[in-house]
Simulated assay, not measured.
Amino acid sequence: MREALGENRKLEAVAEKRRRALSLVVLFLFASCALLMFVVGKRAAAVTNLRNANNIKPETQPVSSESTPSTPAQDYSKFSHFTPGEHAALASRYSCNSCHKRGDNSAEPKLPGHRECINCHQTQFNTPGTPFCLICHTQEGLSQQNPAVKAFPKTLAGFDAEYDHAQHMAGSPEAKPQTGCVACHAPARRGVARTFPNGLAAHQTCYTCHTPGRQAGGRDISSCGVCHAPGGRAVNVTTATRSYGIGFSHATHGPRQNLSCENCHTVGRRGLPEGKQVSATFPAQHFPNTRAQTCASCHNGQRTFGETNFNDCKRCHTGPTFRL
Rank of each mutant, 00 (worst) to 15 (best):
H265C: 02
G171N: 07
A151I: 00
T321G: 05
K110C: 01
T83W: 10
N198C: 11
S279W: 06
F322S: 11
T252K: 09
T123E: 13
A107W: 01
Q167G: 09
P147T: 06
T205P: 01
L272G: 03
A183S: 14
L90K: 12
L90G: 02
F282G: 00
C181Y: 06
V237G: 00
V40K: 09
P288C: 01
N263A: 07
G217S: 10
C298R: 06
L24S: 09
A186Q: 14
R19Y: 03
K17H: 04
R93E: 15
G213M: 07
R323D: 13
L11F: 06
P230K: 10
K17T: 07
Q215R: 14
T130H: 09
R214V: 07
Q145H: 03
A280Q: 12
A229Y: 11
T205E: 10
N119G: 14
L142W: 08
T155S: 14
L5H: 07
A13H: 02
R2F: 12
G245H: 08
R19W: 08
R315Q: 15
Q144Y: 02
C298D: 05
G41L: 15
E108A: 14
G247N: 03
Q167H: 10
K57D: 12
A148V: 06
G129W: 02
C209M: 04
T304K: 11
C261E: 07
S67N: 08
G271T: 07
Q257V: 03
A44I: 07
G275V: 02
C96S: 14
A34C: 08
A53S: 14
H203W: 06
L324G: 06
A234M: 11
T304D: 11
N198T: 13
A188I: 10
T318P: 03
N119D: 08
S64M: 05
R9W: 01
S67E: 11
S23R: 14
R233W: 00
A151W: 00
P147E: 01
N300I: 02
C206I: 12
G268M: 06
G275P: 00
M1S: 11
V39Y: 06
L35P: 00
C133D: 02
T252S: 08
N55L: 14
A44G: 02
G199N: 05
E116I: 10
N258S: 12
A21M: 09
P112F: 10
N289S: 13
Q277V: 08
H253T: 09
R18C: 05
T205S: 11
H203F: 14
E262K: 09
N263C: 04
S143Y: 07
F30Y: 06
E140H: 04
R20P: 00
T211D: 00
A216Y: 03
K154G: 10
Q145F: 08
R270P: 02
P112I: 04
K110M: 08
K176P: 03
K10T: 10
A229R: 15
A201Q: 11
C117A: 12
A284C: 11
F152C: 06
A234W: 04
T308Q: 13
A186D: 04
E12P: 00
I118R: 01
L22T: 11
E7F: 07
Q302D: 02
K10C: 01
A183Y: 01
S297F: 15
I118P: 00
A44E: 09
P131M: 01
G231A: 01
A88P: 02
V39F: 13
D220V: 03
A216P: 00
I221K: 09
Q145L: 13
V14T: 03
A251M: 05
